[in-house]
Design a protein around this nucleic acid. Structure first.
Lengths: 241, 241
DNA sequence: CAGTGGTCTAGACCACTTA
DNA sequence: AAGTGGTCTAGACCACTGA
C-alpha cells in the first residue's frame, strides 16, 4: 500500500485512491471497476479492506454494486440526477415525484461580478456562463432558475444547442465534473415583476427560493444556482434522520 | 440466533433486535450497551456480525460508540436534538447555527379534528394536545409554531409547567418516545394577521412554512408540527449528498 | 492492568450473473 | 462453470479508557 505522511486507516487510504481515480476520470461513469480481488492484489491489501472502501463509496452513491456483475461508477443519468437534487414533489399523501420539463432558456457568457466571484471562489479576471430558464410542471411554469458556471470549467457550454433537462449529467459526460454535494439555503420571498411574468402569477405571490452551491468531487464549488418556485401545489420535501 | 420466518442476513436480524430493545426501553438513553463480545455470545453469532449491526446503529445516530469506553444509547439532549431537527441558521458565509429561545406559549387539550386524525393516523375518538408557541432568535420573534400531539402517547403533557426548548428530549425522557425521522414539506406562504402580530411584521410578508411529521422508532407518527419562519436574516440550510 | 471498540487479515460458503 | 459481490467466522493486533 502506498504510504501516506499522515496516518490513516488502510481502508480510508484505499477509499481515497478510488475516489481520485473516479474524480480524475481514470474510471469514467458507467465503467466496470476492477473486482475486489484485483484491486486488493494491486494495492497490496486484503480483499476485506477493499470491500470496506467500496462499501463506503456505494453508501455515498459514487458507485453501484451488483452481485454477480460487478461495481460500476455511478452515472448522473437524467432520472438519477433529477431525483437526487430536485426535491420538489406533490404534497402528502401521494408525495409523487414530479418531473419538470423545459420552458424558455437563455444562455450568455460574461465577466463575473463580485458576488459570483465570491460564491464560486473565482480569482483573477474570471468569466462566467449565465443560464436562465423556466421549468414547467404539468405544462405550466412553476420554477425560474438562474445558473452561474465558471467558464473555465465549462468551456464551450454556451454554444450548446439544447441543454438537457438535468444539467448535472451534462456536467459529468461533457465536462468530466461530478457533483458530490449541494449546499442549499431556503428562504421565502415575494415574486417580483419578472418572476410574475415568467410564472404567470401576480407580483407579490410568495415563492420558495433555493440558493444552491454545487460542489464537485474534488471539493471545488462549480455551480451557483438560484431557483424560485411557486409552491401552490408542489412542495420541497425532505426527510431528516 | 432467533429464527425469523422471512430470511434476512444475520447482521440485520441482530440490528432489528437491538433497535427494538432501544425502542421498547429495555435500554434507556445514556445507558451503556453490553460489549460486542457479550452480545455476540448472548445471541450466538460472531463478534464481527454484532459489530456490523452496531456500526449501522451508529451510522443512524441511534447509539454512540467510544473506543475504550463502550457504546451508549443516543440521547436527545437539548443541544443534540436542537441541531438535528432545527435547520435554521444564518446565511453564508458564517452559516452559524442559531439557538432559538422561547417566546410565548399556550397549550390546550381537545378532540382531534379530521386533518389531525389523518396526519397522525389516529383512530376512534382521539384527543390531541395543541401547543402554540413563538420562538425568538436574537431576542426578536422569528418563528411561530403549532404542534399537535396525540394525547394518548403524551398523557399529562398539558400539565407541564415549563416545556423545554427542544421538545424532543422531553418526549424521550418523559414519555419514552424517541424520534427516528422527520418528514418535512416546505412551502412559501404569506403571513396572515395572527402571524404578523406574533412576529411583529406586516401581513403579507413571505414566510417559510415547514410542515413536519415526526416518526418514532417504531414507525408511528407522533407529532405534527407547522412552523412559519421569517427568513429575512435566517435561512433553512441543508446539504444534499 | 483489563476491557472496550477499531483495524486488518484469511478463508469459507452462498447468491447471483453471464457465457 | 467461472467470476462477481454478499455474508459470516475466527483470530490477531492496536488505541484508547478507566480503575
Amino acid at each position: 500500500m502506498v504510504s501516506t505522511p499522515d496516518f490513516q486507516p488502510l481502508y480510508k487510504q484505499v477509499y481515497n485512491v478510488l475516489v481520485s481515480r473516479i474524480a480524475d476520470g481514470d474510471w469514467r461513469p458507467a465503467k466496470v471497476l476492477p473486482s475486489e480481488q484485483a484491486l486488493a492484489s494491486e494495492l497490496g491489501v486484503s480483499q476485506g479492506t477493499v470491500r470496506r472502501a467500496m462499501d463506503a463509496l456505494a453508501a455515498e452513491n459514487l458507485i453501484l454494486r451488483h452481485q454477480g456483475r460487478g461495481s460500476f461508477v455511478a452515472e448522473h443519468t437524467q432520472e438519477h440526477a433529477l431525483f437526487r437534487f430536485f426535491r420538489l414533489s406533490r404534497p402528502a399523501p401521494n408525495h409523487a415525484r414530479v418531473t419538470p420539463t423545459l420552458g424558455s432558456e437563455r444562455i450568455v457568457r460574461r465577466p463575473a461580478n463580485d458576488k459570483e466571484r465570491w460564491k464560486l471562489a473565482l480569482r483573477g479576471k474570471a468569466e462566467v456562463v449565465e443560464i436562465r430558464r423556466t421549468r414547467l410542471i404539468d405544462e405550466s411554469p412553476r420554477v425560474v432558475e438562474k445558473i452561474i458556471l465558471p467558464h473555465r470549467l465549462f468551456h464551450g457550454i454556451e454554444k450548446e444547442k439544447h441543454l438537457p433537462n438535468t444539467l448535472y449529467s451534462l456536467y459529468q459526460e461533457g465536462f468530466g465534473i461530478s457533483i458530490a454535494v449541494a449546499k442549499e439555503e431556503l428562504r421565502a420571498v415575494l415574486a417580483n415583476k419578472k418572476d410574475a411574468a415568467a410564472l404567470g402569477i401576480s407580483a407579490g405571490t410568495p415563492l420558495l427560493q433555493i440558493d444552491r452551491i454545487a460542489v464537485a468531487l474534488d471539493g471545488q464549488p462549480v455551480e451557483w444556482r438560484i431557483s424560485r418556485c411557486d409552491t401552490k401545489d408542489i412542495v420541497y420535501a425532505i426527510e431528516v434522520k
